[in-house]
Design a protein around this nucleic acid. Structure first.
Lengths: 218, 218
DNA sequence: CGTTTCCTTGACCATATGGTCAGGATGAGC
DNA sequence: GCTCATCCTGACCATATGGTCAAGGAAACG
């Protein structure tokens, strides 16, 4: 059955567990993204993972535990990417690479972003703690950076929070509202070229919008 | 019981129906926003509307019919507001008022925006036709307007689609991700002043971002 | 009033779903 | 190859939920 590892890896106890958990988590991410927490059924997830429902419950005792794990994985990816913010002390490079990376993540992990959006939409019943700790900490530290840029005259004065919200919403839109974008794009996904154009458009509007273009007033 | 009209209106057949449908629709909008289509239960909606479940099903035979009605109402509000786009042929005024109005709607009807977001997130199973007709038509006509502004040199060249997505996502973020914003704002809703600041920030970044500030390069 | 039409609702049903369990299969260790 | 720990799964259960129904009110109307 599908529990055997697909490639040439032999089925040892260790790999069995790792493989199956991965299978289930991937299926769960897709199904949760498509149907939300309550909309998703454990049978659906199991079927998509190619295992019986009872086996799913062997690895993840409850639907909620599985969901939390999915959200956790997403949040990890998301936070790691956010570190590109710090790689550079110049607002143009820092924001460009941050926005670019967030757009790429939206494209590569649309399900993750959707699960996150769904969770916030419904009041974050499962991940409130993440909002209050990791997200808040991250946000506060970046607000400080942005404020420094302002006091150094590198960008014009804008409230950092609303700038961040703008970046988050715009970039994640390409994952969360992917279906709407595709529909408006003749029912086909954005091509690589279109996506690059979108990325450039977003970056240029935001950078120029905060007065951070390379040809500054300096 | 609560079916009697709250004010002094007497309970005639006509008002009974109107009142109850309104009660149910309001409750449904809130519950659908909070839990999504599948997450919402008709009992929940009925309870919130203050009527027995069987009575709800007397007015709306199925959950799906009720949901479609809710989405339809939202879409109507949303499209009407979009007309502010045309009130003016100057990009600065047109975009300012459009963004401002969309922000206000996000604040006044957060549930509507959430239901919409939820629906798109899950692939628009119920409202695909809206996307393909009304939304597409509206978008295409505004793309033409924006392109005209570009050819007239009123704004710098940006792809109109991605500009529109940016406006939609940024403004609706204040409804859809309201919970996250509140959490990051010391668990309290944005004050009127904060909201005005957010609005101004968004408008100024976008307008300056597309080179449409009043003090143009003219 | 009488009756007709519309409204209200407690009780009920079929189905779907999250989760359990007992017993069988399979790799690990010797 | 024997034993043990882990893995697998069909069958099962309790509960929740969308939706129905029949019988009882209340307004419309003459």
């Amino acid at each position: 059955m599908s529990s055997s590892s697909p490639a040439g890896k032999k089925a040892t106890k260790a790999t069995i567990r790792a493989d199956n958990e991965k299978l289930i988590l991937e299926a769960a991410e897709a199904v949760f993204a498509e149907s939300g927490f309550r909309g998703a059924t454990t049978s659906q997830i199991a079927e998509r993972a190619g295992i019986p429902k009872a086996n799913l419950h062997y690895y993840f005792p409850t639907k909620k535990v599985l969901y939390r794990q999915v959200v956790h994985n997403i949040f990890t990816i998301w936070l790691e990417a956010a570190n590109s913010f710090d790689d550079c002390d110049d607002p143009v490079s820092a924001l460009s690479s941050y926005i670019s990376l967030k757009m790429d993540i939206s494209r590569q992990y649309p399900n993750g972003s959707k699960v996150w959006a769904n969770e916030i939409l419904h009041g974050a019943p499962v991940i409130q703690d993440y909002l209050e700790t990791s997200l808040r900490d991250w946000t506060q530290s970046r607000v400080i950076i942005i404020n420094r840029w302002i006091s150094e005259g590198k960008i014009r004065p804008v409230d950092p929070n609303y700038l961040l919200y703008m970046i988050w919403s715009t970039t994640q839109h390409y994952a969360d509202f992917n279906h709407q974008i595709e529909t408006l794009n003749q029912h086909s996904p954005l091509t690589d070229i279109q996506f690059e154009t979108a990325k450039k458009t977003v970056i240029s509007i935001i950078l120029q919008g905060i007065g951070a273009t390379p040809n500054d007033r300096s």
